[in-house]
Amino acid sequence: MIVKDVLVILFMLGGFFLFFTATLGLLRLPDFFTRLHATGKGDTLAALWFLVALAVHHGFSLTSAKIVFIAVFLFLAQPTATHAISRAAFRCGVRPWTLERAVLLDEDTVEQGGEK
């Protein structure tokens, strides 16, 4: 029983860590693609670890089998959705962030006297 609880806690801590880093990336990274990269990867694996923790907590039953199914389809669908969104954004003309462009944009805002 103790071993199972420790496993569940470890999986959940891993999920919390990944959710935290994904949200940090969403808030701190500079443009659309990098933010999508952070949330797309981080949220997928975090949700997977939470689902694994729930399945372990529930033991060997039909419910945990359903949870495993949810995890499998989440793992299929979420990266595909991220891929499709980023592809659509690139085709619609969203330019990726680069250091050179960031410096140029910074100089523009400084010359115009505007805020960043």
Binding site: F73, L76, A77, T80, H83, A84, R87
Partner: peptide, 15 residues
């Protein structure tokens, strides 16, 4: 024209 989207959609629709 994206093979990834088409393949995953084909896989997911029956489920």
């Amino acid at each position: 024209d994206d093979v990834i989207v088409k393949a995953v959609a084909r896989l997911l629709v029956p489920f």
